[in-house]
Write a protein that binds this DNA or RNA. Structure first.
Length: 284
DNA sequence: AACCAGGACACAA
DNA sequence: TTGTGTCATGGT
């Protein structure tokens, strides 16, 4: 078992891991466990940083520091935001909130499964998919078994019934269809990182079950397109309640607003607003 | 017990 | 372009 201490400040680990961008982190004895890049990982938040443990030896931890995006300067990101009271309140509600850099396929598949589902349900569905069809990964002695997220090749070979048995309902044919396009190479997920934002989004939206919102989630949470701004029901509430309380804005105008107003780190602003609305205004 | 959830899609107007 | 019904499941 290898261990490392990452010194980092203003990193709200728990909130970040539970902020609806990743769905496989579980709290165990005050620590957080999941599988990243095929490896079991345990994270423990400390006052001045994060302690990480993995199974086996490890000399290069860049895969994990990249996943956690430990290198980004949160102050610089916040400084790039417009100085409006709503966004400032959202930031103050959880200053250490971060964006992760996830595996594109896992992120894509997870968000295909996310449509009109609560986060807890998405976690349950993803967990089912992993434990049924994912490869098992090495865990510490006596630890419960852990599984990797099944590849597109694996899912492409499953029947729609196999998938529906994981409680994903009408999303099953979407996931199956997308898995086949990725497995066949019709969509090259690796190549998307080199495209400009618009082209990258178009490419993702060729996949069945992937519209503007889910595409933007993947662009932001897996590829790191900082301008991607997914608009879900919570963000829509934020826009209508906080920014346009009395003006009747068309959906298109709202989208245009989000793309120009929040600046080069719009996606980060979006995550602050999402977390703010979900925790401060649970139902309204 | 209704209402709604990190939507997409086909189709109408 | 914008509005509506449909899709499946279960949390709150």
């Amino acid at each position: 078992m290898a261990e490392i201490f990452f010194p980092v400040r203003d990193y709200a680990l728990a909130e970040t891991l539970q902020s609806g961008q990743a769905f496989r982190w579980r709290e165990v004895d005050g620590a957080w466990e999941s599988v990243v890049k095929g490896r079991w990982v345990r994270l423990l938040e400390k006052p001045n940083g994060i302690v990480a443990k993995v199974v086996g030896a490890e000399s290069n931890w860049s895969w994990l520091s990249n996943y956690l995006q430990l290198g980004i300067d949160i102050d610089q990101v916040i400084a790039s935001f417009p100085k409006d009271p709503h966004l400032q309140a959202a930031i103050e509600s959880c200053r250490g909130l971060r964006l992760l850099r996830q595996d594109p396929w896992e992120c894509l598949a997870s968000f295909i499964l996310s449509s009109t589902k609560q986060i807890v349900q998405i976690q349950q569905i993803v967990d089912l998919v992993c434990r049924r069809f994912g490869d098992s990964v090495a865990v510490p002695e006596g630890h419960l078994p852990a599984f990797d997220f099944p590849s597109a090749q694996i899912i492409a070979r499953l029947s729609e019934t196999d998938l529906r048995d994981c409680k994903m309902g009408f999303r099953a044919p979407y996931l199956a269809g997308s898995a086949k396009m990725v497995a066949s190479g019709e969509i090259d997920l690796a190549a998307i990182s080199g495209l400009p934002l618009g082209k990258a989004r178009e490419e993702l939206m060729r996949l069945p079950g992937v519209g503007r919102k889910i595409a933007d989630c993947v662009l932001l949470f897996a590829y790191g397109f900082q301008r991607a701004f997914p608009v879900d029901v919570w963000i829509l509430k934020a826009l209508l309640q906080l920014y346009f309380p009395r003006r009747k804005k068309s959906p298109k105008k709202l989208l245009e607003f989000t793309q120009s107003y929040f600046g080069p780190n719009a996606g980060f602003a979006q995550q602050f607003l999402f977390h703010y609305m979900r925790t401060r205004f649970p139902k309204s």
